[in-house]
């Protein structure tokens, strides 16, 4: 099945630059599978443009303590690839928000690359981010993903050379994920992110010309996002969102607290 109208492509085509595109990362099955569905549906009503749905892995070596925690909770509660795909299926009954599956390659390999791409495309997944598949190793996934019309989004980092950024831009589809600082995922002090990031952003602007550019890692507030993403198409928040869920779940009204945080991220103080 070839998807002719990819929702990610449509999102960036529609985007007029008046506000930044906001993508949120959420671990599938955290705090539980039904809550994941409810959160995504609520996100769409609260200004979220794109969802990166994390496929939990037992050994998330590029993630900080927050996503390690949410991944563990989801695994302990019995999340499986089938359940993750079912989450997407349930969201798709009510929403057309673009959804990217993001996670390490091993669970994908174990499910079977061909079956994974087929089933992901069938339930309405719009793209893949697999951080431990750099372009050198893309052969393992590329052909099957292409066959099913699933774009693969690659990352660039502060230590990626100009030449390599151009190469990654050529191979990436949908957008390029710009990792603003070296290190694992997780909330950092705003100043720490700001210091070194401008040089990197300037290099990204110069070298990533084919794709839209989304910046992530260490963004935890509207102010961080506006500053860091000033020259980008949008920004990505993950750990700070999960920390907010962790802070309020399972109090009464926890989802409203999460949605309020999401609105503040996008629009600033209410």
């Amino acid at each position: 099945m070839i998807q002719t109208e990819n929702r990610i492509a449509q999102l960036f085509e529609r985007h007029d630059g008046s506000e930044k595109i906001m993508s949120l990362f959420l671990t599938a099955g955290y705090p539980d599978p039904q809550a994941t569905v409810d959160l995504i549906l609520g996100f769409e009503e609260n200004g979220v443009d794109l969802v990166e749905l994390g496929m939990p892995f037992s050994d998330p070596l590029a993630d900080g303590p927050t996503i390690q925690y949410s991944s563990n909770v989801a695994i302990e509660q019995g999340i499986t690839m089938k359940k993750i795909l079912h989450i997407v299926e349930q969201v798709r009954e009510k929403s057309q928000i673009p959804i990217i599956l993001m996670g390490y390659i091993n669970p994908v390999l174990r499910y079977g690359v061909e079956a994974f791409c087929r089933d992901a495309a069938n339930v309405g997944v719009d793209g893949l981010i697999i951080p431990d598949i750099p372009i050198e190793e893309s052969g393992i996934l590329k052909e099957e993903a292409e066959k099913k019309g699933l774009p693969i989004i690659y990352l660039v980092a502060p230590n990626t050379s100009d030449e390599r950024m151009r190469k990654i831009d050529q191979q990436s589809q949908g957008f390029v994920y710009c990792v603003s600082v070296t290190g694992v995922t997780g909330a950092r002090e705003g100043d720490e992110v700001a210091k070194s990031v401008q040089k990197f952003i300037d290099r990204v602007k110069k070298n990533v010309t084919k794709n839209p550019k989304m910046v992530g890692f260490g963004i935890k507030s509207h102010e961080d996002a506006q500053r860091i993403a000033a020259d980008m198409d949008g920004f990505i928040v993950g750990s700070a969102l999960i920390d907010t869920i962790r802070e309020h779940y399972p109090e009464e009204g926890w989802k409203d607290e999460v949605f309020a945080f999401v609105r503040r991220l996008k629009y600033g103080k209410e």
């Binding site: 750099p134 050198e136 190793e137 990352l155 230590n159």
Partner: peptide, 19 residues
């Protein structure tokens, strides 16, 4: 490329590739 038949490779985040 660091392969022994089907095994080996560099399955690491982008940050580690230049390193």
């Amino acid at each position: 490329e660091g392969y022994y038949g089907d095994f080996g490779g560099k399955f690491v985040p982008e940050i580690l590739i230049p390193v």
